[in-house]
Amino acid sequence: MRTLTLTTALLAGLSLTLAACELGPDAPSRGPVLIPAAAEGATCDVPADLTPARPYRIPADEVAADVPVAFNMLAVSWSPQACRSGKDYPDERYQCAQNQFGLTLHGLWPNGADNRHPRYCAAPGPAIPVATVRKHFCMTPSPSLQQHEWAAHGTCGWDSPEAYFEQAARMWNGLNKPDLEAIPAQRLTAGAIRDAFVAANPGLPREGVFIATTDGWFREARLCYARDYRPMRCPRGLGAPDRERLKLAPTGTAQTPR
């Protein structure tokens, strides 16, 4: 089993992130930028037996190949909530039993201008190559979810799963991940989580952070980006209102849910 330790020095990186956040993930670099990849102490074990998921039958009623892309969303999930609820990440053994994640990437989603979004824009082809699945496992720790994200979303803007996940990885690696567990339980609201993402990422507008919840639990933050991948305001609301009190599933099994 290969072990990747994703430990970073947050304080060393904070002073260097502003240029990258303002330019966007695809803009030319103005110099070296140190951006923490994950919370300090987080680890990711890439399983030796990791294999791609099988392609699945595309649901005909979800195909929307004719919808133009108006903007993009980067859906950043709270992994303990996915493990707690059993939603979004179907490979529990890899994500929940073998690893302890905090924030992980649900996906990069092209969005339409209204409530219709581009989806399943082309036949996804064979299973994602195992090298691609392994390369991006620590970002999206579920082969099944990787296959779904490529089929449902990646085919609506990229020619291959490699190109899709490379773009997602550039955005993911360019994002400072806030320590959500540092927020006191009595102050944990949708607004506090929104503020944490903005404070960690200068250049990210507060109106660009959509907060998704499930029955009072924080589920994920969906960050809005223009078609050129620059941060922007979310054009259709921000999800949970600032004042909404939330609970946060703990990363450690010995911890008590907040």
Rank of each mutant, 00 (worst) to 15 (best):
R116M: 10
G86W: 07
P36G: 07
P110T: 07
D49C: 12
V46Y: 04
R93F: 10
Y94L: 06
N115K: 14
Y120A: 02
R84W: 05
N72D: 11
P59G: 05
G102T: 14
P36H: 04
N115G: 09
P36Q: 11
Y56E: 13
L108N: 05
Y120T: 05
P118S: 03
Y120N: 02
Y120D: 03
P90K: 09
A75P: 04
I58H: 03
N72F: 15
D66A: 15
P68Q: 04
P36I: 01
P124W: 00
P59N: 10
F71L: 06
F71Q: 05
A70V: 06
I35A: 06
V46I: 15
C96Q: 01
A38Q: 11
A97K: 12
A122T: 10
A122I: 06
Y89P: 00
P90Y: 08
P110L: 04
E92T: 13
L50W: 01
H106A: 09
F71C: 00
S85R: 04
A60D: 06
C44M: 10
L103P: 03
G102P: 05
N111I: 08
P124Y: 03
A60T: 09
D88Q: 14
R54G: 06
P124N: 07
L34F: 10
G112T: 09
H106D: 11
R57G: 08
A123L: 13
A42L: 12
W78R: 02
G107Q: 06
C44E: 04
P59L: 03
R54A: 15
